[in-house]
Design a protein around this nucleic acid. Structure first.
Length: 427
RNA sequence: GUGGAAGUAGCUCAGCUGGUUAGAGCAUUAGAUUGUGGUUCUAAGGGUCGGGGGUUCGAAUCCCCUCUUCCACCCCA
C-alpha cells in the first residue's frame, strides 16, 4: 500500500535540503556575527505550556497527543515558551544579557496556503534582560543583517517599526480605556491587511466616537513621528515612548541599516504580549505576508513562573523567506550543489580498480572528500560522473601508473592536467 | 472551519464534443565512446490517467463521493 506524505508537510530531497541548509546556514552565520548563542529544546512539551499564554483557539491549532502515562503533550508551535521555561530554570546562573538563537522545527495544524505550512522552520533570536533600546536595535539589526547578506536590498525589504507603548499612550489620550486596548490591537494590526471599509467597520464596533476613529485612521498612516503631535496631544508616556523610538532610529542609522528601516504606526502585531517596540519586515514590492516580526515583551518570563524581566525577540519563518528569495532570483532551482568532491578517481585501466579504492581511502583519511567509480567503464563516462559530482579535481590512474607510478591530476574547472609521482600528491 | 480552481511518466505539460495498445520535452539508464567531462545523436525503462463508486457497448474525457495541491477568506504564537 502506497502511503503519501501528510498534508502541509514537505519532503526534503537533496535539492530541497540544499535550499533549507542555504537558509539555515545564513541564519546561523548572522546570529553568530551578532553574538547570539544557539540553543534548542524538545520538540514536544506539556500541552499546558501553550495554554498558559493563549486561549483555546490556539490550542485547537496544536498537534497534541497523550503519552502512555496519560500526559497531555503538544508538538511545539513556537519555541518562545520553551525559551522562557529554559531561561527561568537557570535564571540565576545565566550571564546577562542572555542572547540566544534557535532554528526550531515547528508544527501548527493550520490550513496550508502560500507561505504557510503545517511543519516549518523558524529562526528565533532573543535578548533577555536588557532594557536599553540597544537591544531592540540589535534584534532588528541581526534580522536585516541576515536579509542583507542574501543580497536583498532596501528596495526589496523594509523593516516597519513602531511602538506599542507609544500607541497605548496615544489611544489613552484619545479617551480610550486601558482595558479596551487589548481588543483594539488585533484590529489595528489588520489595517494594512484588509480593505479600508472593513477596517472602519471593525473599529466602529469598538469605538462609538467617529472623530476618534478618524484620528486613529490618520494616525495609522503616519510614517513620520514628528507628525503625531499634530493629531494627538502627547502626554508624558507618549513623549517617553517617542524618545525611545527616536533613540532606536538613531542607533539603526549608526549601524548603517537606516535605509532598511521605517517608522510605521500601522505595525501593531496581533499578539497581546508585546509591550514596547514592535516591528515587521515586509517584502517592499509584493504582497507576501510578513517575512519576520518581533518586538519587546516584558511579561513572558513572569507568565511562566519566573521573575519580571524584559526581553526583545524576533521570529522568521522559512516559507515566506524562500518565496521571497526565489522571487528576487537569489534562489533558483538546482543552482545549489547537493554534492561536491575534492577528488574523484578515474580508472583508465580496469586492473587499477583496487588501487583507486586504496587511494580514495587514503585521501579520505587525510580529510578530503573523494569518490571512486564502482564500475570502471569508459574513461569518458567516469569523467562525466566526476563532473556530475562537482569534483574539483580528478585523479586518473592509467598506463603512467602501471609503468612509472605516476598519476594524472586533472583540474576540472580549467581542464588542465599534470602528471606527477604518486608520492608527491600533497594531502 | 468557509468558498473557488486543479490533479495524466520523477518534473513541466498535450491528449478535440466519450471511440483501437495514453503522448511530447526535460530527467534517468544504456549505446555511439576500451585514455579525457559539462555539448550532440540513437535507443530503452518508466503510467491501475490521485483514489473509490456510477452512467455507457466503450471513460483520462461525463456524474457523485473522497484525498491532495494551489488561490481567496478565518487565524497567525
Amino acid at each position: 500500500m502506497k502511503i503519501s506524505s501528510v498534508k502541509g508537510t514537505r519532503d526534503f530531497y537533496p535539492p530541497q535540503m540544499a535550499v533549507r541548509n542555504f537558509i539555515a546556514d545564513g541564519w546561523k552565520a548572522a546570529s553568530r556575527r551578532c553574538g547570539f548563542e544557539e540553543f534548542d529544546g524538545p520538540i514536544f512539551e506539556y500541552l499546558q505550556m501553550y495554554q498558559i499564554k493563549s486561549g483555546d483557539e490556539i490550542v485547537e491549532q496544536l498537534f497534541h497527543l497523550t503519552d502512555r502515562g496519560g500526559r497531555d503533550l503538544a508538538i511545539r508551535p513556537e519555541i518562545t515558551p520553551t525559551l522562557a521555561r529554559m531561561v527561568n530554570e537557570q535564571i540565576n546562573a545565566l550571564p546577562r544579557p542572555i542572547k540566544w538563537f534557535s532554528i526550531p522545527r515547528l508544527c501548527r495544524a493550520e490550513r496550508p496556503q502560500k507561505g504557510r505550512l503545517r511543519e516549518f522552520f523558524q529562526w528565533n533570536i532573543d535578548i533577555i534582560g536588557e532594557e536599553s533600546t540597544l537591544a531592540d536595535a540589535e534584534v532588528i539589526f541581526c534580522s536585516i543583517d541576515y536579509l542583507r547578506s542574501t543580497g536583498l536590498t532596501p528596495k526589496d525589504v523594509v523593516a516597519k517599526i513602531s511602538s506599542r507603548k507609544l500607541l497605548a499612550a496615544l489611544l489613552k489620550n484619545l479617551g480610550l480605556a486601558e482595558d479596551k486596548l487589548s481588543v483594539l490591537y488585533p484590529i489595528l494590526d489588520k489595517k494594512a491587511k484588509i480593505p479600508a471599509e472593513a477596517f472602519t467597520e471593525m473599529l466602529g464596533k469598538e469605538i462609538s466616537d467617529s472623530n476618534v476613529i478618524h484620528t486613529i485612521m490618520k494616525l495609522m498612516d503616519l510614517h513620520n513621528a514628528d507628525d503625531i503631535a499634530g493629531l494627538v496631544n502627547l502626554n508624558e508616556d507618549a513623549k517617553t515612548a517617542l524618545a525611545q523610538l527616536q533613540d532606536l532610529f538613531k542607533t539603526l542609522n549608526a549601524m548603517g541599516i537606516g535605509e532598511y528601516c521605517r517608522f510605521d504606526m500601522s505595525i501593531v502585531r496581533g499578539l497581546a504580549y508585546y509591550t514596547g517596540m514592535v516591528f515587521e519586515v515586509h517584502d517592499a514590492v509584493g504582497d507576501l505576508r510578513a517575512v519576520c516580526g518581533g518586538g519587546r515583551y516584558d511579561n513572558l518570563l513572569k507568565d511562566f513562573g519566573g521573575p519580571a524581566m524584559t526581553a526583545v525577540g524576533m521570529g522568521m519563518g522559512d516559507c515566506v523567506l524562500e518565496i521571497l528569495l526565489r522571487e528576487r532570483g537569489i534562489l533558483k532551482n538546482d543552482t545549489l550543489a547537493t554534492k561536491t568532491l575534492d577528488y574523484f578517481i578515474a580508472v583508465a585501466d580496469p586492473t587499477l580498480a583496487d588501487k583507486a579504492v586504496e587511494l580514495a581511502a587514503k585521501i579520505r583519511q587525510a580529510g578530503f572528500s573523494c569518490e571512486f567509480p564502482y564500475k570502471t567503464g569508459a574513461l569518458g563516462k567516469q569523467l562525466k560522473q566526476a563532473s556530475g559530482y562537482n569534483a574539483r579535481k580528478t585523479i586518473i590512474l592509467g598506463q603512467e601508473y602501471i609503468q612509472d607510478r605516476q598519476i594524472i591530476i586533472k583540474d576540472m574547472t580549467t581542464g588542465q592536467q599534470q602528471v606527477i609521482a604518486e608520492q608527491s600528491l600533497s594531502l
